[in-house]
């Protein structure tokens, strides 16, 4: 069972919901929480586990071997991402632009561009009782999140059996990293806030999930601020609203101290229960 927690707008509560829902479900069985927001992972702030495993993650980048090169320029022509540039008598490679497609390397008639691994980030796994927490962190300066997200998903699939509940804290937005983070999910929770900005980005996220043919529902966070347009939108679009988390100073205080909310605010625990019951009935739950 894979549940991805996404949003359009950033800062609407993906991490709050991911960490609280994971810890809540871990009270009854094993749960894997994975932070896929590799550009700025922050679920770890709320999970105080013991480090179990750490590994570097690599992507493949061409390396120019000057002595073999005849400066034919094929590498530059076949690169769709302008990551390989022929400048006078040398070949320049921009690793951050490279998508590791191997075209330049494979099509080089002189084999002057072998692919070599380059570190793009690191993955860590922490355990707290029934909760397994995996996070990946992209190296500063790296532009592409997708390769690291993909490798992180592969790690989780390889390490944990299918029947364990897996929760994925996704990146914000609706572009490639979000697609990668949600495309294998059995259910996607879109969390939003009841403001015009929240609604605008929620509608983009809803369109994205429809395009991906995902089963999904909405959670409204900070309910009570803004207006009722998000509710009206969900009703009109027939998108189920799974829960409303109230706008409450106490919640903000707990969050700011890195604490889990549901343990201290019974209403939030109730809302988490609603969410889980919904997912269990529509998407199969714990198998």
């Amino acid at each position: 069972m894979k549940i991805a927690i996404a949003s359009g707008k950033g800062g609407t509560g993906k991490t709050t919901l991911s960490t609280n829902l994971s810890a809540f479900l871990a009270e009854q069985g094993k749960v894997v929480l994975t932070d896929l927001d590799v550009e700025e992972p922050n679920s770890g702030l709320f999970v105080n586990g013991t480090l179990q495993h750490a590994e570097d993650k690599f992507k493949m980048i061409p390396e120019w071997e000057q002595e073999k090169c005849t400066l034919c320029g094929i590498c530059q022509e076949v690169c769709n991402y302008h990551a390989v540039i022929k400048m006078a008598d040398q070949i320049m490679i921009f690793p951050e632009l490279c998508h590791s497609c191997y075209a330049c390397s494979e099509l080089c008639p002189e084999e002057a561009l072998p692919m070599i691994p380059q570190k793009m980030g690191e993955l860590k796994q922490f355990n707290v009782n029934n909760l397994f927490f995996v996070e990946s962190r992209l190296k500063i300066g790296e532009e592409q999140a997708v390769p690291l997200i993909k490798q992180t998903l592969q790690y989780v699939d390889a390490q944990f059996p299918k029947e364990i509940i897996k929760i994925y804290d996704s990146p914000p937005g609706t572009s490639c990293p979000v697609i990668e983070a949600t495309k294998d999910a059995d259910f996607v929770i879109l969390i939003t806030e009841p403001t015009p900005f929240g609604l605008h980005d929620l509608s983009l996220a809803v369109e994205t999930m429809r395009e991906l043919k995902k089963s999904f529902g909405v959670v409204i966070n900070r309910y009570g601020i803004g207006n009722d347009d998000v509710l009206a939108y969900c009703e009109k679009e027939k998108v189920p609203v799974l829960a409303k988390i109230p706008n409450d100073r106490k919640i903000a205080e707990l969050y700011s101290r890195g604490e889990l909310i549901y343990r201290k605010v019974p209403e939030v625990k109730q809302q988490l229960d609603h969410i889980w019951k919904y997912i269990e009935t529509t998407a199969g739950g714990r198998q």
Binding site: Q76, Y81, H82, A83, I85, A88, M92, F94, L97
Partner: peptide
């Protein structure tokens, strides 16, 4: 139409 890499490509065109 290039999502990425406009800078180095333009620099190469200019070169």
């Amino acid at each position: 139409d290039a999502a990425h890499g406009a800078g180095p490509q333009t620099a190469q065109n200019l070169f």
